[in-house]
Design a protein around this nucleic acid. Structure first.
Length: 205
DNA sequence: TTCCGGTGCC
DNA sequence: GGCACTGGAA
């Protein structure tokens, strides 16, 4: 039990963020954008998604056989890696509509964060997403160090959640991390206007 | 550790 | 012109 982390999570859950904040109206759109957003500004992801949808690519089958996939997703960057990952994901979803975490992780270009994003937001499975925002906020609050692995951090956070947490709680918690990360906890800015500042200043427990 | 990468902000 | 952006692979 980490008192400081527990308090921070309680605080974040008080935000009452929208559990359905992740843009996209289908499993295809949500899961595809999870690939596209890897280390990339969301603004660029939207451009890539619009290119796909404007070209009539709105299903795994169409994406799999689209010869211009690289061109369409170009604005999202890393387009060679991401187009390969998208095709791999399309193949998996076409054969298995509800893939497991292990199946997702076996795809080249799908790591733990992308897998958890797809499971939580596209398939409504109870997984916690650990992203750059989550990590940065917890580092600046002196709750973790850089050495903390993805799985360690995920386990740590799940251990502080209310006993009967559900999928929407996980979505709202991650949404709150993203919100704080985007608005206050920038990489190069200070913490003095952050709503979590009080927690940061509190000593480690 | 380094590479993949276009976009927007400073 | 420099750098950050909801990562992942080798």
């Amino acid at each position: 039990m980490n008192e400081k982390l527990h308090t921070l999570i309680e605080k974040l859950l008080e935000w009452q963020t929208d559990p359905d904040w992740w843009p996209g109206s289908s499993v295809f759109e949500i899961a595809s954008s999870a690939i596209l957003t890897q280390n990339t500004n969301w603004n660029n992801v939207e451009k890539a998604m619009h290119n796909l949808l404007d070209s009539g690519i709105d299903s795994w089958e169409k994406l799999l056989y689209d010869e211009d996939l690289e061109k369409h997703i170009r604005p999202a960057g890393f387009y060679q890696n991401k187009s390969r990952a998208l095709r791999a994901l399309a193949g998996l979803f076409l054969s298995t509509p509800e893939p497991t975490r292990t199946q997702l992780l076996n795809l080249r270009g799908v790591g733990p964060e992308t897998a958890d994003s797809i499971l939580l937001y596209a398939l409504n499975k109870p997984e916690m997403v650990i992203d750059a925002y989550t990590r940065r906020i917890l580092e600046k609050c002196n709750i973790i160090t850089k050495k903390c692995s993805y799985d360690e951090l995920k386990t740590m956070i799940l251990g502080e959640l209310p006993a009967h947490y559900d999928v929407n709680t996980l979505k709202r918690l991650h949404a709150a991390f993203v919100e704080i990360g985007k608005r206050y906890c920038k990489k190069t800015t200070k913490c003095n206007c952050c709503p979590l500042e009080a927690i940061k200043e509190r000593g480690t427990s």
